[in-house]
Amino acid sequence: MKTRKKGNQFELVIPDNWKNVTIETILREYWEAPKKLIHSMRMEKDIRVNGELIPWTDPLSAGDLLQLHLFKEVEYDVSPTYGEIEVLFEDEHLIVVNKPAGIDTHPNHPGETDTLANLVAFHHQSHGESCRVLHIHRLDHDTSGAIIFAKHPLSKAILDRLLAERKIKRTYHALVHGRLKQKKGTISEPIGRDRHHNTRRRVSPSGQDAVTHYQVMENRNPYTLVEVQLDTGRTHQIRVHMSHLGHPLAGDTLYGGRPVFKRQALHAARISFPHPLTDEKIECEAACMDDVGLGDWRT
């Protein structure tokens, strides 16, 4: 699929297998964009074909140039804060960065300026991009690794759907206490709030469904290095599930781990997903940047 950014436009050449499709079907069926966003794009006349406004129900031909006004001048929704970030992938629609430990993904209160989102805003600003910083998922304050931000509403809407459909695959490395009896397994236990502790979660019959897959990478007596993949993204999911299994994360004092590191030994090592606009497969690997027993492991 031929695409490019031209000024504030995203241009896409209609491929042969899209013959006789319409603007309506591309938005609703191919990209499955939300109705509210489609309505907004219609009202603001954001889409042209070969430079012309046409009815959205007119059939398009292979080779037609679809032009979407996606790159609009907007104010930053978080304050840009000077600092370096490690970019794993970036184009005009999204950015994947390697989050360091000890930093929140985004501001939780007005005026916060020391989060990853603030650093991403500065990165955009320094490259002359005026766009929102739209997180697709989160990592805990003390969890490091790969994380995705969208740059405009259409990209965010599609990435949100891909996440809900479990098409965004996240692989974590964790160092846990003890030696696991099974080389691999699945933990399928609902997770809810702990009524006795504001920040804790726990396995609870009344909680939300949560599914975690794990596989032993290496035994490092008295620890085990495991690779973990999630089907769901509950708060503290890996930490809660591994603790429930009897193998809390090293350094995770909130869930029974011993304070052998300054943080829990958990790192989002790899992320893969289809590109929201082109369907190209994106794969990113993130090196662990501090010493929590994971730094010498890359996928």
Rank of each mutant, 00 (worst) to 15 (best):
Asp140Thr: 05
His127Ser: 14
His69Tyr: 15
Asp142Val: 01
Glu90Arg: 06
Lys151Thr: 13
Ile168Gly: 06
Val74Leu: 04
Ala150Ser: 13
Glu73Phe: 02
His69Glu: 15
Lys156Trp: 03
Leu159Gly: 11
Leu68Asp: 07
Asp64Glu: 08
Arg166Lys: 15
Val97Gln: 13
Pro107Asn: 11
Thr57Cys: 00
Ala146Lys: 04
Thr105Gly: 13
Tyr82Gln: 04
Pro100Gly: 01
Leu139Ala: 06
Gly63Glu: 07
Pro110Ile: 00
Leu139Tyr: 04
His106Glu: 15
Gly83Asn: 04
Asp91Gln: 03
Val87Asp: 08
His69Val: 13
Val96Thr: 10
Val74Gly: 07
Gln125Arg: 10
Arg166His: 07
Val78Arg: 05
Tyr76Met: 00
Glu86Phe: 05
Leu70Tyr: 14
Leu154Pro: 11
Ile148Leu: 07
Ala150Met: 09
Leu88Phe: 10
His124Ser: 08
Asp114Ala: 04
Ala164Phe: 00
Ile158Asp: 06
Asp160Leu: 00
His152Trp: 13
Leu70Phe: 15
Ala101Ile: 15
Ser126Phe: 05
Gln125Trp: 03
Arg138Asp: 00
Thr113Tyr: 02
Lys167Asn: 08
Glu92Thr: 14
Ile158Ala: 01
Phe89Ser: 00
Ser61Asn: 13
Thr143Tyr: 02
Arg132Ala: 12
Val97Gly: 12
Glu112His: 04
Gly111Gln: 13
Ser79Cys: 05
Ala117His: 04
Glu92Asp: 15
Leu163Ile: 00
Lys99Pro: 02
Thr113Gln: 07
Ala121Ser: 11
Asp104Glu: 12
Asn108Val: 03
Leu163Tyr: 01
Pro107Thr: 04
Ser79Asp: 05
His124Ala: 07
Phe122Trp: 15
Leu68Val: 14
His152Glu: 14
Pro110Lys: 11
Glu112Tyr: 00
Ser130Val: 04
Cys131Tyr: 05
Lys156Pro: 01
